[in-house]
C-alpha cells in the first residue's frame, strides 16, 4: 500500500517534469521561428540602397561642362572587360545625362575637353566568392581607363570611401574631374553613386535610383 502510493507519486512527478520539459523544449525551438524575418517580405525596391560619396574638397559649381560614356562597362565575376549597350544601358546613360543637365552642367563631346566625365559600370559579382575593391573594375585595361578620356598614362585616384562588397549586382556612376587632371597628374573621382540591392539591373528602377542619388546630392550643381 505504502509502496504503491510512493510509485504513484513518482509517476505523477515524472509526468509533470516530462510535460514541463516538453514545454521548455517547445519554447526553445520556437526561439528562431518567433523572430520576424526582415528579408522575407522585402520588395526589390525596398532592398535597394543608393550610396553617394563625394570628394569634400571639390567645388562642384566650378565645373561647367561634362561628357558621358557611350556605353556601359560590365565588370562580371572577375571576367575580362566588356562594354555593353543594352536597353538598360541606354536608359541609364539618358537618365544620368538629363540629371546632370538639370543641375546646370552642359553636355559636350569628349573631344571638346569637358570639365567632368562620367563613367558607368555594371558590376556583377554574384558568382565570385572573393571580395574586391573598386580598383578592380577601374584600373584594368578595357574598362573605362583614363586613356578613354584623353589622359593616357594617368591613373585614377580612388578615394577611401569606396565600400568592399561581394556576391551581388551593383551599378556604379563615377564623376571624374578632367579639369584638374593634368595638374594633379591623376583623374580624381569627385562623386560616386552606387546602386546596390536586388533588381538594380532592371530598367524599372533606373529613374528611381538616378533621381534618388542626385536628389540626396544637393551640392552637385553648377
Amino acid at each position: 500500500m505504502k509502496t504503491g502510493k510512493k510509485n504513484f507519486t513518482i509517476v505523477s512527478v515524472r509526468t509533470m517534469f516530462f510535460m514541463g520539459a516538453i514545454a521548455a523544449a517547445a519554447a526553445i525551438l520556437s526561439l528562431g521561428s518567433c523572430r520576424k524575418d526582415p528579408l522575407n517580405d522585402m520588395t526589390e525596391e525596398e532592398s535597394q540602397i543608393y550610396i553617394t560619396n563625394r570628394d569634400t574638397t571639390a567645388n562642384f559649381s566650378s565645373y561647367t561642362t561634362f561628357s558621358i560614356v557611350d556605353s556601359v562597362a560590365v565588370a562580371s565575376n572577375g571576367d575580362t572587360a566588356r562594354r555593353a549597350l543594352t536597353d538598360y544601358d541606354k536608359q541609364l546613360i539618358a537618365a544620368v545625362k538629363s540629371a546632370m543637365q538639370s543641375r546646370g552642367y552642359t553636355l559636350v563631346d569628349k573631344a571638346a575637353k569637358p570639365n567632368l566625365a562620367i563613367n558607368l559600370t555594371r558590376i556583377d559579382e554574384t558568382f565570385a566568392s572573393t571580395y574586391y575593391d573598386p580598383g578592380y573594375w577601374s584600373g584594368w585595361g578595357g574598362y573605362w581607363d583614363p586613356f578613354y578620356w584623353g589622359y593616357p598614362g594617368l591613373g585614377y585616384y580612388w578615394p577611401s570611401y569606396y565600400t568592399v562588397y561581394t556576391r551581388e549586382r551593383a551599378v556604379s556612376v563615377d564623376l571624374l574631374d578632367l579639369q584638374h587632371a593634368a595638374e594633379d597628374k591623376e583623374v580624381k573621382v569627385v562623386w560616386n553613386a552606387m546602386f546596390r540591392g536586388s533588381g538594380v539591373w532592371s530598367t524599372s528602377y533606373i529613374s528611381n535610383m538616378v533621381n534618388g542619388a542626385f536628389g540626396q546630392s544637393t551640392y552637385l550643381k553648377k
Partner: peptide, 16 residues
C-alpha cells in the same frame, strides 16, 4: 536618406 562621413545613403531600414 542617412548622412555618412563623405556622402549619404538612401535606404529602407529594417531595424531589429
Amino acid at each position: 536618406v542617412y548622412p555618412t562621413k563623405s556622402g549619404d545613403i538612401s535606404a529602407v531600414q529594417t531595424r531589429t
